[in-house]
Design a protein around this nucleic acid. Structure first.
Length: 184
DNA sequence: ACGAGGATGCTCT
DNA sequence: GAGCATCCTCGTC
């Protein structure tokens, strides 16, 4: 059971905040990997100059115009893949960029895919690589596909907001959200 | 810890 | 042809 579709169908900033602390799971190549989502960014529809949807429909951002709960994967800087959860109404190109997580399941496989033993998924490109996600997963369902969002956010989590990373337009909107886990 | 610079390919003007 | 929703390595401090 999941409130995910309803959650994503609403305001993208609220959706981004409420995705923090949920689990992101991939089952790719017969291997299950799972992370706890710790960092996300909200990207609005055609009114957000930093959003891929700002200029309207293109081949790249086509998935953003589909139903909330669709996975939008794009290539970044020619090298990396980045994951988004499509939000908002159908036809409104809003999405939540899934920026970082903490390994929960399949850490060995993440190490193998990343080719190193540290910094497994502390950035959007690293997260995609650790989970084995590529452009071929673009447009799949985050409820039923190979990459899924699971669970409910834990109670009492602390959220810190800040400016979005790596953008030049609308850089003043504090639409980046990190979850601060209580220390030991 | 932090900053500079390069890699790399696709999208849109 | 410009501009990226990035990451890595190697240099300093």
């Amino acid at each position: 059971m999941s409130d995910l579709p309803r959650l994503l169908a609403g305001d993208v900033v609220a959706a981004a905040r409420r995705l923090l602390g949920r689990r992101l799971r991939s089952e790719i190549g017969g291997i299950v990997c799972e992370v706890l989502l710790t960092e996300v960014e909200a990207y609005g529809g055609t009114e957000d100059p930093a959003s891929h949807g700002f200029g309207g429909w293109t081949r790249r951002n086509a998935s953003m115009f589909r139903s909330p709960g669709t996975l939008y994967v794009y290539r970044s800087y020619g090298i990396h893949w980045c994951l988004n959860a499509v939000a908002g109404a159908v036809g409104e190109p809003a999405a939540v960029l899934l920026r970082a997580g903490r390994p929960l399941v399949g850490e060995e496989e993440m190490r193998r895919r990343r080719g190193r033993s540290d910094h497994l998924c502390d950035g959007p490109g690293k997260l995609a690589q650790a989970l084995g996600v590529t452009g071929e997963h673009d447009g799949t369902s985050l409820l039923e596909g190979p990459v899924r969002l699971l669970g409910d956010p834990p109670p009492g989590r602390r959220i810190v907001a800040g400016p979005r990373v790596g953008i030049s337009r609308a850089a003043d909107r504090p639409w980046r959200f990190r979850m601060v886990e209580p220390g030991p």
